[in-house]
Protein backbone atom coordinates (compact mmCIF):
# COMPACT_ATOMS: atom_id res chain seq x y z
CA UNK A 1 0.00 0.00 0.00
CA UNK A 2 1.05 3.56 -0.67
CA UNK A 3 1.24 5.67 2.46
CA UNK A 4 1.05 9.18 1.09
CA UNK A 5 -1.71 11.01 -0.69
CA UNK A 6 -1.63 12.19 -4.26
CA UNK A 7 -4.19 13.29 -6.75
CA UNK A 8 -5.29 11.50 -9.85
CA UNK A 9 -6.54 12.57 -13.22
CA UNK A 10 -7.41 10.49 -16.19
CA UNK A 11 -6.40 11.89 -19.56
CA UNK A 12 -8.54 11.21 -22.61
CA UNK A 13 -5.71 11.85 -25.01
CA UNK A 14 -1.96 11.83 -24.83
CA UNK A 15 -1.97 15.56 -25.61
CA UNK A 16 -4.07 16.20 -22.52
CA UNK A 17 -1.70 14.12 -20.45
CA UNK A 18 1.29 16.09 -21.69
CA UNK A 19 -0.44 19.37 -20.93
CA UNK A 20 -1.17 18.22 -17.40
CA UNK A 21 2.38 17.04 -16.83
CA UNK A 22 3.70 20.35 -18.13
CA UNK A 23 1.55 22.35 -15.75
CA UNK A 24 2.59 20.36 -12.74
CA UNK A 25 6.28 20.91 -13.42
CA UNK A 26 7.82 17.82 -12.03
CA UNK A 27 5.24 16.99 -9.43
CA UNK A 28 3.19 14.82 -11.76
CA UNK A 29 3.89 11.45 -13.24
CA UNK A 30 2.17 9.59 -16.03
CA UNK A 31 0.60 6.29 -15.03
CA UNK A 32 0.38 3.59 -17.68
CA UNK A 33 0.51 -0.03 -16.46
CA UNK A 34 1.89 1.11 -13.13
CA UNK A 35 3.97 -2.01 -12.58
CA UNK A 36 7.15 0.00 -12.11
CA UNK A 37 5.75 3.33 -10.93
CA UNK A 38 3.42 2.08 -8.17
CA UNK A 39 5.98 -0.19 -6.46
CA UNK A 40 8.36 2.79 -6.65
CA UNK A 41 5.76 4.96 -4.95
CA UNK A 42 5.14 2.28 -2.33
CA UNK A 43 8.84 2.39 -1.52
CA UNK A 44 8.62 6.20 -1.67
CA UNK A 45 11.46 6.43 -4.13
CA UNK A 46 9.11 8.71 -5.99
CA UNK A 47 6.42 10.89 -4.37
CA UNK A 48 4.45 12.59 -7.11
CA UNK A 49 1.58 14.88 -6.16
CA UNK A 50 -0.46 13.87 -9.16
CA UNK A 51 -0.77 10.80 -11.31
CA UNK A 52 -1.98 11.36 -14.82
CA UNK A 53 -3.58 8.12 -15.85
CA UNK A 54 -3.27 7.02 -19.44
CA UNK A 55 -5.61 4.07 -18.94
CA UNK A 56 -8.46 5.82 -20.70
CA UNK A 57 -6.48 6.06 -23.91
CA UNK A 58 -7.01 3.08 -26.12
CA UNK A 59 -3.76 2.09 -27.83
CA UNK A 60 -3.80 1.75 -31.60
CA UNK A 61 -3.22 -1.73 -32.90
CA UNK A 62 0.28 -2.40 -34.25
CA UNK A 63 0.41 -1.60 -37.93
CA UNK A 64 2.76 -2.08 -40.81
CA UNK A 65 3.34 1.15 -42.67
CA UNK A 66 3.80 1.63 -46.39
CA UNK A 67 7.60 1.42 -46.15
CA UNK A 68 7.34 -1.92 -44.36
CA UNK A 69 8.21 -0.51 -40.96
CA UNK A 70 5.98 -1.34 -38.03
CA UNK A 71 4.47 1.22 -35.71
CA UNK A 72 3.50 0.16 -32.22
CA UNK A 73 1.60 2.36 -29.83
CA UNK A 74 3.59 2.97 -26.64
CA UNK A 75 0.51 2.09 -24.59
CA UNK A 76 0.39 -1.41 -26.04
CA UNK A 77 0.42 -3.93 -23.25
CA UNK A 78 3.31 -6.37 -23.09
CA UNK A 79 0.88 -9.29 -23.20
CA UNK A 80 -0.50 -7.92 -26.45
CA UNK A 81 3.01 -7.64 -27.84
CA UNK A 82 4.00 -11.18 -26.95
CA UNK A 83 0.79 -12.65 -28.30
CA UNK A 84 0.17 -10.45 -31.36
CA UNK A 85 0.33 -12.46 -34.60
CA UNK A 86 1.60 -9.41 -36.43
CA UNK A 87 4.34 -8.59 -33.95
CA UNK A 88 5.47 -12.20 -33.75
CA UNK A 89 5.68 -12.39 -37.53
CA UNK A 90 7.22 -9.02 -38.33
CA UNK A 91 9.38 -8.34 -35.25
CA UNK A 92 9.75 -11.64 -33.44
CA UNK A 93 12.60 -10.33 -31.32
CA UNK A 94 10.30 -7.70 -29.85
CA UNK A 95 7.66 -10.33 -29.07
CA UNK A 96 10.36 -12.48 -27.49
CA UNK A 97 11.70 -9.65 -25.35
CA UNK A 98 8.17 -8.84 -24.14
CA UNK A 99 7.57 -12.52 -23.41
CA UNK A 100 10.36 -12.66 -20.82
CA UNK A 101 9.37 -9.57 -18.82
CA UNK A 102 8.41 -10.18 -15.17
CA UNK A 103 5.56 -12.60 -14.67
CA UNK A 104 2.35 -12.94 -16.65
CA UNK A 105 0.41 -10.48 -14.49
CA UNK A 106 3.12 -7.87 -15.01
CA UNK A 107 2.88 -8.37 -18.77
CA UNK A 108 -0.89 -8.08 -18.61
CA UNK A 109 -0.60 -4.66 -16.97
CA UNK A 110 2.71 -3.26 -18.16
CA UNK A 111 3.01 -1.31 -21.40
CA UNK A 112 5.71 -0.96 -24.01
CA UNK A 113 6.29 2.69 -23.16
CA UNK A 114 6.27 2.00 -19.45
CA UNK A 115 8.80 -0.76 -19.84
CA UNK A 116 11.15 1.60 -21.69
CA UNK A 117 10.62 4.36 -19.12
CA UNK A 118 11.22 2.16 -16.08
CA UNK A 119 13.45 3.38 -13.28
CA UNK A 120 16.98 2.13 -12.77
CA UNK A 121 17.45 -0.46 -10.05
CA UNK A 122 19.81 -0.91 -7.12
CA UNK A 123 19.47 -3.18 -4.09
CA UNK A 124 19.89 -0.23 -1.77
CA UNK A 125 17.33 1.84 -3.62
CA UNK A 126 14.61 -0.76 -4.12
CA UNK A 127 13.17 -0.95 -0.65
CA UNK A 128 11.40 1.24 1.83
CA UNK A 129 13.75 3.35 3.86
CA UNK A 130 11.97 3.26 7.19
CA UNK A 131 14.97 1.92 9.09
CA UNK A 132 17.36 0.64 6.44
CA UNK A 133 19.38 3.16 4.40
CA UNK A 134 17.41 5.99 5.95
CA UNK A 135 19.70 8.78 4.79
CA UNK A 136 18.81 9.39 1.15
CA UNK A 137 21.37 8.39 -1.47
CA UNK A 138 22.32 10.53 -4.46
CA UNK A 139 19.51 9.02 -6.50
CA UNK A 140 16.98 10.08 -3.89
CA UNK A 141 18.40 13.55 -3.64
CA UNK A 142 20.75 12.84 -0.76
CA UNK A 143 24.45 12.90 -0.15
CA UNK A 144 25.73 9.33 -0.20
CA UNK A 145 26.04 6.18 -2.27
CA UNK A 146 25.60 2.96 -0.28
CA UNK A 147 27.02 0.36 -2.68
CA UNK A 148 29.83 2.55 -3.97
CA UNK A 149 30.64 4.95 -1.13
CA UNK A 150 33.48 6.62 -2.99
CA UNK A 151 31.34 7.65 -5.93
CA UNK A 152 31.02 11.35 -6.65
CA UNK A 153 27.56 12.94 -6.20
CA UNK A 154 26.94 13.05 -9.93
CA UNK A 155 27.54 9.31 -10.30
CA UNK A 156 24.84 6.74 -9.64
CA UNK A 157 25.85 3.21 -10.58
CA UNK A 158 22.38 1.83 -10.71
CA UNK A 159 21.30 -0.53 -13.45
CA UNK A 160 18.69 -0.02 -16.13
CA UNK A 161 17.02 -3.38 -16.56
CA UNK A 162 14.45 -3.21 -19.35
CA UNK A 163 14.33 -6.41 -21.38
CA UNK A 164 12.76 -4.69 -24.35
CA UNK A 165 15.08 -1.73 -24.81
CA UNK A 166 18.05 -3.87 -25.93
CA UNK A 167 15.86 -5.59 -28.50
CA UNK A 168 14.58 -2.30 -29.87
CA UNK A 169 18.05 -0.79 -30.07
CA UNK A 170 19.32 -3.86 -31.89
CA UNK A 171 16.39 -3.45 -34.28
CA UNK A 172 17.41 0.16 -34.86
CA UNK A 173 14.02 1.31 -33.66
CA UNK A 174 12.91 4.85 -33.04
CA UNK A 175 10.52 6.34 -30.53
CA UNK A 176 8.02 9.03 -31.22
CA UNK A 177 7.93 11.43 -28.31
CA UNK A 178 5.07 13.78 -27.63
CA UNK A 179 5.92 16.99 -25.86
CA UNK A 180 4.26 20.34 -25.37
CA UNK A 181 5.52 21.59 -28.67
CA UNK A 182 4.62 18.54 -30.67
CA UNK A 183 6.26 15.29 -31.51
CA UNK A 184 9.87 14.47 -32.05
CA UNK A 185 11.40 11.26 -33.17
CA UNK A 186 14.69 9.86 -31.88
CA UNK A 187 16.48 6.56 -31.98
CA UNK A 188 15.61 4.36 -29.04
CA UNK A 189 19.31 4.34 -28.36
CA UNK A 190 19.22 8.10 -27.82
CA UNK A 191 16.55 7.71 -25.18
CA UNK A 192 19.19 6.69 -22.66
CA UNK A 193 21.56 9.13 -21.05
CA UNK A 194 23.84 6.62 -19.36
CA UNK A 195 23.35 8.60 -16.17
CA UNK A 196 21.76 6.62 -13.34
CA UNK A 197 20.50 9.78 -11.73
CA UNK A 198 18.46 10.64 -14.80
CA UNK A 199 18.51 7.65 -17.08
CA UNK A 200 16.04 8.89 -19.70
CA UNK A 201 16.50 11.74 -22.16
CA UNK A 202 12.94 12.91 -21.69
CA UNK A 203 11.72 16.11 -20.19
CA UNK A 204 9.12 16.03 -17.45
CA UNK A 205 6.29 16.72 -19.86
CA UNK A 206 7.24 14.30 -22.56
CA UNK A 207 5.62 10.95 -23.18
CA UNK A 208 6.41 8.13 -25.53
CA UNK A 209 3.74 7.90 -28.19
CA UNK A 210 4.94 5.08 -30.38
CA UNK A 211 7.82 2.86 -31.29
CA UNK A 212 8.78 2.53 -34.94
CA UNK A 213 10.77 -0.41 -36.12
CA UNK A 214 12.21 -0.37 -39.63
CA UNK A 215 11.41 -3.18 -42.00
CA UNK A 216 13.81 -6.05 -41.95
CA UNK A 217 15.83 -6.39 -45.14
CA UNK A 218 16.48 -9.78 -46.67
CA UNK A 219 19.31 -11.48 -44.84
CA UNK A 220 18.23 -10.11 -41.47
CA UNK A 221 18.47 -12.38 -38.47
CA UNK A 222 18.40 -11.94 -34.74
CA UNK A 223 19.17 -13.46 -31.37
CA UNK A 224 17.95 -12.58 -27.90
CA UNK A 225 18.86 -13.87 -24.48
CA UNK A 226 17.97 -12.92 -20.94
CA UNK A 227 20.19 -14.41 -18.26
CA UNK A 228 18.34 -15.20 -15.06
CA UNK A 229 18.75 -17.54 -12.14
CA UNK A 230 15.15 -18.74 -12.07
CA UNK A 231 14.01 -18.52 -15.67
CA UNK A 232 11.27 -16.04 -14.88
CA UNK A 233 9.84 -13.48 -12.47
CA UNK A 234 13.03 -11.53 -12.16
CA UNK A 235 15.05 -8.84 -13.81
CA UNK A 236 17.91 -10.12 -15.92
CA UNK A 237 21.45 -10.37 -14.70
CA UNK A 238 22.23 -9.51 -18.31
CA UNK A 239 20.06 -9.07 -21.41
CA UNK A 240 21.54 -9.62 -24.85
CA UNK A 241 20.05 -8.61 -28.17
CA UNK A 242 21.70 -9.19 -31.51
CA UNK A 243 20.60 -8.12 -35.01
CA UNK A 244 22.66 -9.29 -37.95
CA UNK A 245 22.48 -8.60 -41.63
CA UNK A 246 23.90 -11.43 -43.70
CA UNK A 247 25.05 -11.45 -47.30
CA UNK A 248 23.53 -13.90 -49.72
CA UNK A 249 26.05 -16.58 -48.77
CA UNK A 250 24.37 -16.67 -45.38
CA UNK A 251 27.72 -16.42 -43.55
CA UNK A 252 29.19 -13.04 -44.33
CA UNK A 253 28.00 -10.32 -42.03
CA UNK A 254 27.17 -7.02 -43.67
CA UNK A 255 25.85 -5.28 -40.60
CA UNK A 256 25.68 -6.10 -36.91
CA UNK A 257 24.07 -4.54 -33.91
CA UNK A 258 24.79 -5.93 -30.48
CA UNK A 259 23.15 -4.58 -27.35
CA UNK A 260 23.81 -5.53 -23.77
CA UNK A 261 21.23 -4.56 -21.19
CA UNK A 262 20.79 -4.82 -17.42
CA UNK A 263 24.44 -4.32 -16.57
CA UNK A 264 24.87 -0.55 -16.82
CA UNK A 265 22.91 2.67 -16.32
CA UNK A 266 21.51 2.15 -19.81
CA UNK A 267 21.75 -0.41 -22.61
CA UNK A 268 25.23 -0.60 -24.09
CA UNK A 269 26.33 -1.13 -27.69
CA UNK A 270 29.86 -2.50 -28.14
CA UNK A 271 30.51 -0.69 -31.39
CA UNK A 272 34.02 -2.05 -31.93
CA UNK A 273 32.80 -5.61 -31.48
CA UNK A 274 30.00 -4.96 -33.96
CA UNK A 275 32.54 -3.59 -36.46
CA UNK A 276 34.76 -6.59 -35.99
CA UNK A 277 31.99 -8.72 -37.47
CA UNK A 278 31.11 -6.55 -40.44
CA UNK A 279 32.42 -7.80 -43.76
CA UNK A 280 33.60 -10.98 -42.12
CA UNK A 281 32.57 -14.61 -42.24
CA UNK A 282 30.85 -15.46 -39.00
CA UNK A 283 32.72 -18.48 -37.78
CA UNK A 284 32.96 -19.76 -34.23
CA UNK A 285 36.22 -18.01 -33.58
CA UNK A 286 35.03 -14.61 -34.72
CA UNK A 287 31.87 -14.79 -32.70
CA UNK A 288 33.83 -15.92 -29.67
CA UNK A 289 36.17 -12.98 -30.09
CA UNK A 290 33.34 -10.47 -30.49
CA UNK A 291 31.64 -11.86 -27.39
CA UNK A 292 34.83 -11.69 -25.37
CA UNK A 293 35.50 -8.13 -26.52
CA UNK A 294 31.95 -7.14 -25.67
CA UNK A 295 32.09 -8.55 -22.17
CA UNK A 296 35.19 -6.45 -21.58
CA UNK A 297 34.15 -3.14 -23.07
CA UNK A 298 30.68 -3.27 -21.55
CA UNK A 299 32.41 -3.22 -18.18
CA UNK A 300 29.38 -4.50 -16.26
CA UNK A 301 28.53 -3.02 -12.90
CA UNK A 302 28.37 -5.58 -10.14
CA UNK A 303 24.67 -5.68 -9.34
CA UNK A 304 22.09 -7.74 -7.45
CA UNK A 305 24.73 -9.95 -5.92
CA UNK A 306 26.54 -10.79 -9.18
CA UNK A 307 30.21 -9.94 -9.40
CA UNK A 308 31.67 -8.11 -12.34
CA UNK A 309 33.73 -11.14 -13.26
CA UNK A 310 30.72 -13.40 -13.31
CA UNK A 311 28.70 -10.95 -15.37
CA UNK A 312 31.55 -10.79 -17.86
CA UNK A 313 31.65 -14.59 -18.05
CA UNK A 314 27.92 -14.71 -18.50
CA UNK A 315 27.89 -12.09 -21.24
CA UNK A 316 30.81 -13.71 -23.04
CA UNK A 317 29.29 -17.18 -23.22
CA UNK A 318 25.71 -16.17 -23.83
CA UNK A 319 26.56 -13.55 -26.42
CA UNK A 320 28.56 -16.07 -28.40
CA UNK A 321 25.63 -18.46 -28.23
CA UNK A 322 23.16 -15.73 -29.12
CA UNK A 323 25.20 -14.84 -32.19
CA UNK A 324 25.40 -18.52 -33.13
CA UNK A 325 21.66 -18.90 -32.68
CA UNK A 326 21.05 -15.86 -34.88
CA UNK A 327 23.15 -17.49 -37.58
CA UNK A 328 21.36 -20.79 -37.13
CA UNK A 329 18.02 -19.04 -37.36
CA UNK A 330 19.02 -17.58 -40.72
CA UNK A 331 20.04 -21.03 -41.92
CA UNK A 332 16.81 -22.59 -40.70
CA UNK A 333 14.82 -19.92 -42.47
CA UNK A 334 16.82 -20.46 -45.64
CA UNK A 335 16.24 -24.20 -45.37
CA UNK A 336 12.55 -23.70 -44.72
CA UNK A 337 12.11 -21.46 -47.72
Amino acid sequence: MILFDFDYERADTLEQAVALLARLQGDARALAGGTDLLPGMRMENIRPGLLVSLSGIEPEAPQVLADGSIRIDALTRLATLENSELVRRVVPMLAQSAHVVGGNQIRQMGTLGGNLCQEVRCLHLDQKHDYQFVAPCYKRGGTCCYPFPRNAPEVCWSVYMSDIAPALIALNAQVEILGETGTRRIDVEALFTGNGLKPLALSQAELLRAVLIPAAAPGFTWGFHKSTVRGGLEFGMAVLAVALQLAEDGRTCTDARIVVGAVREGPVRPVAAERSLIGKTLDEERMEQAAADTSRVVNPLPHHGFSKRHLMDNIRVHLRRTLARALQRARDQEAGR
Binding site: L31, G34, T35, L38, P39, R42, I106, M109
Partner: peptide, 13 residues
Protein backbone atom coordinates in the same frame (compact mmCIF):
# COMPACT_ATOMS: atom_id res chain seq x y z
CA UNK B 1 -10.66 -11.43 -17.87
CA UNK B 2 -7.00 -10.48 -17.54
CA UNK B 3 -5.03 -11.68 -14.52
CA UNK B 4 -3.57 -8.67 -12.74
CA UNK B 5 -2.02 -7.87 -9.40
CA UNK B 6 -4.56 -6.13 -7.18
CA UNK B 7 -1.80 -4.89 -4.85
CA UNK B 8 -0.34 -2.61 -7.53
CA UNK B 9 -3.55 -1.61 -9.25
CA UNK B 10 -5.11 1.65 -8.15
CA UNK B 11 -8.77 1.22 -7.35
CA UNK B 12 -9.59 4.43 -9.26
CA UNK B 13 -8.26 2.73 -12.37
Amino acid sequence: GRPVLACITLAVE
